[in-house]
Structure formats: structure tokens, C-alpha cells
Write a protein that binds this DNA or RNA. Sequence first.
DNA 1: CCACAACTCACCCGTTCGGGGGATGGACTT
DNA 2: AAGTCCATCCCCCGAACGGGTGAGTTGTGG
Lengths: 210, 210
Amino acid sequence: MTTTSAIKVMTVDDHPLVRVGIATVVNQQPDMKIVAEAESGPRALELYRQHQPDVVLMDLRLRGDSGARITSALCAEFSGAHVLVISNYDGDEDIHQALAAGALGYLFKSVVEDELVDAIREINAGRRYLPKGVADRLHESESGARLTRREDEILDLLGKGLRNRELGQVLGVTEDTVKTHLKSLFRKLQVSDRAEAVREAMRRGFIHSE
Amino acid sequence: MTTTSAIKVMTVDDHPLVRVGIATVVNQQPDMKIVAEAESGPRALELYRQHQPDVVLMDLRLRGDSGARITSALCAEFSGAHVLVISNYDGDEDIHQALAAGALGYLFKSVVEDELVDAIREINAGRRYLPKGVADRLHESESGARLTRREDEILDLLGKGLRNRELGQVLGVTEDTVKTHLKSLFRKLQVSDRAEAVREAMRRGFIHSE
DNA sequence: CCACAACTCACCCGTTCGGGGGATGGACTT
DNA sequence: AAGTCCATCCCCCGAACGGGTGAGTTGTGG
């Protein structure tokens, strides 16, 4: 048996234990093999150049960095990169960002081993792979609530306890303008006040606490 | 070589990949061995009775259940249980709850393999194991901000966008009483409004979005 | 070129908040 | 019995909030 057809897989995750878990599962498959493990964004780029893996398993949230950004960089440099994002979180925004960045698939870390290797094979073949239900939600979020740049900025600052006036000062606009943005923000998130907006934004992945 | 002295380890985690990672690392050690893997709280109890492991590696946040609760239940039934909590999150409250529930140690999932096995040996010996810096923070949080039952309940509801009056109705008290609790809540969390309180509460692990 | 979305600002208005004070009763400690 | 903590309630008041409506300016894209 030759190994020439084995799918070369690279993991990008800052959790050693998760990397070990993935590596163990992948290496148990006869048709795939871990060729590199990156624990950070820059390292991912470096190792990709070095090993030219067929599939990249990308964690979405790494210490400081964002898996979406890394995916963008990767796809910019290597247009043929096949990225499968694996994340703990099912915030709509995370998923959206990942796919927008060029990822071919999305998986939750709660996946069982079989799903993982199935997904890897699909991604390797250049096909998309999304958990059931996720595709539907994407359409919703695309048609429904996509925030503008301003609304995003305001959302970030909302959780910091800034008052409307302070928000205006930070952004360099009037308090009235801030209120206008807040109104459309509340409408889009379907909430009625800032506290609820903060929680909802976290749930959807617009902002993070850590 | 006999295996009679091998440390029997059980994992409790709802992420198969993490279980595999931990199992791989542990089983590579000559002096320890995975004897059971639980993916839920009830299953953890069941498997503990069956295998009587020396050390339990407990994830703090499982689907629906809480690692702290499981730890409590475990320690209640088996006073000699040696639990090592492994969590993604470094919210003070999570750590506090885990230790209060009877856990001997706390680790972040970002640990490298060596730290994990070191910790397992310490816990097996009945000693505590805490990452550097965590012990300090525990003292802070004990002296500083510990919330009362009412404040906790209110915090939970704050993120749902309830107004003070509605909070009162839900809790069966006056709006004025709610405001009193909110004042002391803001003081303890060192915030100035509900939106900031929600984010801070999430950061510290008092409430969760998922 | 025109439509459309985003961003900007303004005004009004009723409601809610946040922060300050003080007070009572129960429970638990010392 | 005194002290402390918690929960409950009350009052006051200025500031902040949310919601509604209208309207001007960009810039992008059909």
C-alpha cells in the first residue's frame, strides 16, 4: 500500500489536548495523515508553506488571533487552500465570518470522530460541509441581521458600560447619531435594551468576553 | 512490569475529540491509564461506581449539565473522589464553584501534555493543583465580590432585557427592592449599568450565553 | 443617473435608570 | 444581647434611555 494518496492534514488550534485528539483520530484513518500542527496564526502560514497540506482544520478562536483572519490570509496566499473550521461556538456570526473568509466547511467541537473524518474527505474533494441546520440559519442571518460597521463598533462599546454621550465622543459623532444607530441595532437584534443587546451579541458571536 | 500501581483515570467531557486527546496523552504514560470515559453527568456517576477511578478529569461545562454539580454529586457519594477540573474558561466564578464543589485541582484546556500528567499525579496523591496565578485570584474574589442569592438571580435575568418592574414581578418583589439589589450588584461588580454588568458577569463566569 | 444603503443630525416625549438617603424584620454569629 | 448580613420596602430626583419621525449627505452599484 502506498501513501501517495493519503490526505495531508494540518491542525491549527492553541489547545494541545485538542490537537492530540484530532491527530489521533485522523492518523487512525488509512487515507489521511497529520503532517503539521500549528498553535498560532503565523505558525499556520509558515507550516502551510512548508507542507502544503490538502486540508486545514482551523480553530476559530485562538489566543488573541481569529481563525477567520488566518483563513483569509491562507486563502489569499494559497487560493486552493481547503479549510475546515472547527469551533466550540455556534454563534451565527462566527460561522458567517468563517465562510466569508473562505472556509469550505464548519464543524462543532462536539463532533464525533466519524463526522470529522467524513468532513475532511468532503473538504478535501473541494465540497462544502456544514452541520444540519446551520445552512438554514445562514440564510436567515444573511437576510435578517447583518450589522453595519458603525453598529458593530457601537456593539463593542456597549458592553463596556459607556453611555450614549460617551459612545458619541469615542466615535466622534453626536449623541443623537448614536441613538439612531442603537435603534436600528436593537431592531436588527430584536432586543429592547442594551443589556439584552450585549447578551444577544455574545450569543451570536458578534462580541466576546474573553 | 505489573499494572497494579497504574493510576486509574476517568474523563468526563462531552467533546469526543477532547476525550481522545486526553486519553491518548494519559495512556502514553506508563503509570496511568484511562479506565472510563463519560460524556454526561449521569454517565459519570454510573461509570465511577463501576470503575472506581483514582482520578476524575472533569469538564466544567457540559451540554446542559454543570461540572460543578457533578463534582458535588460525586464527592457526596464517594468522599474519597479525586476530581481535577479541566475547563476552557478562566472565569473566577467557575473556578470557585469547582473547588467549592470538592474538586482538588483546576486546569485550563490550554495546558500542555506535561502539565496534565503532572496534575494527575498530584491529584492522585490527594494534593491540590492550581495553575500559577489562580490561587491569588481566588483570594481576591473571596474577599471582594461574592454575590448573594438574590443578586445572582437578578443577574441571570438582566441579560434577558427585563426592566426593573418586570424583574420584580418575576421574583415576586417590589421594583424598589430590585433596584436595591441592583445597586449593590453594580457596586460589587464595579460597573455602572446593566449592560456592563452582563458582560462582566459573563467574563467572570456568573452567567453564560450558551 | 438614479436608487439604495449607510451615516449623520435633530427634536419630542414618556419611561426607565442609577444613585442617594433611610427603615424594618429575620437569620446567623459571636 | 449586640453585631452583621440579607432581603425587603420606601422616597426623591436628575440623568439617561427608547422610540417615533423627519431629513441632509455621502458613496456604491445597478
